[in-house]
Design a protein around this nucleic acid. Structure first.
Lengths: 144, 144
DNA sequence: TTTCATTTCTGTAACTGTTACAATAATTAT
DNA sequence: ATAATTATTGTAACAGTTACAGAAATGAAA
């Protein structure tokens, strides 16, 4: 497990071919540390709470740059807002429809039998499960 | 294959426990016939082109009703807009990043090995593949 | 049928997430 | 140091969605 600090992140950025500007380091560090599938707005508010001087537009610009550099993956779990994930390895997500929280799940997508995709070139696979998380399921039982 | 006409659709609505208003029949018929994973706006423009007198808000309201009645499934393939699908059976989607088209694919999700979801109650599974569709892949080759 | 209560639909306006754009600031190369 | 490029900011526009109040349609009861 590589340590996460400004230097390692700056290096990772340069390796990916982009300049290690302060906004990029901040945002990538946030994504690597929190791993909470945040929205752009969540990133903005969390970072500026401690370090003002970052604009909302810069968050969007930076996220676009990090996506292009394949350092960050966009998640389209909700229909109306993007979420972002610094984990690039194949994995799935569970969205609790009760509390809204998004959980990482490990899923072996090679086991999926897919047909009717002859000639399709696949570059990304997203698996999203929806339902109720254990915490909310227990709460619902208690209320009965 | 059951025939799709206003009567069978009205009956389907009533069976699902909702009134068969004209807006609901129109929109469900559109979804069943077109099967093009439309956005709310696409539904609105396509229907009002031939039959004016349907409001954009009614499209949203109706889609929410049809979702509650489990007749329509929301798709969150893009981050900024919802799409809708009248097919309820488990299947996946392929989004071509080049032309934007969304294809249905048949996927057996029972083969997925998922771990780390003890206690999670799953109500829906979405599989989204992204990449290049055969049509666009051929175009890209031609250009080289 | 007429009346009443409820449900559905409409139009406007607000709201949220995102993007475009021009101006400023910072960085890199010359 | 200077110029050219790149990054960041703030404002404003834009798109998709939702809230809300009033109008219309529907269903039930008399």
């Amino acid at each position: 497990m590589k340590e996460i600090n400004n230097n390692t992140i700056a290096e990772e950025l340069r390796e990916a071919g982009v300049r290690a500007s302060s906004a990029r380091v901040m945002i990538l560090k946030y994504l690597l540390k929190e791993r909470n599938h945040p929205t752009a707005d969540r990133i903005y508010t969390d970072i500026t709470e401690h370090l003002p001087g970052l604009s909302r537009t810069s968050v969007y610009n930076t996220l676009a740059t990090l996506q292009d550099a394949k350092l960050v993956r966009p998640l389209t779990i909700d229909g109306t807002e993007m979420r972002y994930d610094a984990t690039v390895e194949d994995h799935g997500h569970f969205k609790c429809e009760s509390c809204g929280k998004v959980y990482d799940i490990s899923a072996d997508m090679n086991g999926i039998k897919v047909s009717g995709i002859r000639g399709f070139r696949i570059s990304q696979r997203d698996l999203i499960l929806r339902g109720t998380c254990p915490h909310c399921a227990r709460k619902q039982l208690d209320m009965q």
